[in-house]
């Protein structure tokens, strides 16, 4: 019966699309990253690991981009999770207009990144931007910064915008996790005289682990692929300060060295495949247990 009622072509449609437009380009990319593919000549030659040698050589800037990508990923995971958890706890309490707040806090997630970039470029403008004007108005003029063009601040500002945009999403997932924890645990703990801190440490955190796994995996995969936030805010500047892997990929695009560009994607591909495999294994296990 299974054979007849669950025909393979049901899978095949999605699978074919996925193969043709996602898997095949990636495999081609892996192949081409061993060639000198570029925009100036129409023939390509096999050049072995030269492109990868370029990427990992210390004369070039690519390691900086990889490092920034990792810094971005780790800091957004931590910030979004901590703030998201705090917010989830907050909107799970007996506050007024609970639903309204949830809706508002999630809102940044639905604004297009391109628009977010345009708005925040204005907000961060050192001369007439909202932040610096506000600081000057309340007499904290010395705190004003060149948010997007100061080497010390640019990458932090990018991370801040990304956290602003992404935390609501994480909050909602964690909120769902919180709501699935039975009240009886807390009641029992209260009878035993547990403090709020202890309840959080011994009940909330362990039972929230599945949800935290999901958010961490989502943040991880998102962070490693980060492109649009950087692109719309600084496009890698000032100089090369805020370059991440994907902005470097696109500058290779414009320089016409497709070989190096696609080799960069391949490096990312390898990292993501390993991490992705581990992550999906984790998520699938949660699924069977939950």
């Amino acid at each position: 019966m299974t054979k007849r009622m669950y025909p393979f072509y049901f899978i095949a449609i999605a699978l074919v699309f996925y193969l043709v437009f996602a898997v095949i380009p990636s495999l081609m990319g892996i192949f081409l990253s061993f060639t000198d593919w570029n925009s100036y000549s129409r023939v390509t030659h096999f050049i072995g690991f030269d492109n990868f040698a370029t990427i990992f050589s210390s004369d070039e800037n690519y390691l900086h981009g990889i490092k920034n990508t990792i810094v971005f990923t780790i800091s957004t995971i931590i910030l979004k999770t901590v703030i998201g958890l705090f917010l989830a706890e907050l909107v799970n309490k007996k506050i007024k207009f609970k639903n309204l707040h949830r809706v508002l806090i999630f809102m940044p997630a639905i604004i297009p990144m391109l628009v977010v970039g345009i708005i925040f470029k204005s907000i961060f403008n050192p001369e007439y931007g909202l932040i610096n004007e506000a600081l000057r108005t309340i007499g904290l003029g010395q705190w004003t910064q060149q948010w997007l063009t100061d080497v010390q601040w640019a990458f932090k500002s990018i991370i801040a915008v990304d956290v602003w945009k992404g935390t609501g999403y994480i909050m909602v997932i964690l909120l769902a996790g919180l709501q699935s924890i039975s009240h009886s645990y807390y009641e029992a703990a209260e009878i035993d005289g547990a403090t709020a801190m202890m309840k959080f440490r011994f009940i909330t955190l362990p039972l929230l682990l599945p949800a935290l796994t999901v958010t961490t995996v989502l943040n991880l995969l998102y962070g490693l692929k980060i492109f649009d936030t950087v692109y719309v805010l600084t496009n890698g500047g000032p100089g090369y300060t805020t370059d991440v892997v994907y902005t470097q990929v696109f500058s290779q695009f414009s320089l016409g060295s497709y070989g190096v560009g696609t080799a960069l994607i391949t490096v990312l591909f390898v990292i993501m495949t390993i991490l992705g495999y581990v992550a999906i294994r984790l998520m699938s296990r949660e699924e069977y247990n939950g």
């Binding site: 063009t149 100061d150 080497v151 890698g236 500047g237 000032p238 100089g239 090369y240 300060t241 500058s251 414009s254 320089l255």
Partner: peptide
């Protein structure tokens, strides 16, 4: 052809990285 790249380099120089 490398105008924008020089631009990036010169910005990096302005912020004392190059």
């Amino acid at each position: 052809p490398q105008w924008t790249d020089i631009g990036k380099d010169m910005s990096a120089m302005m912020v004392k990285q190059l």
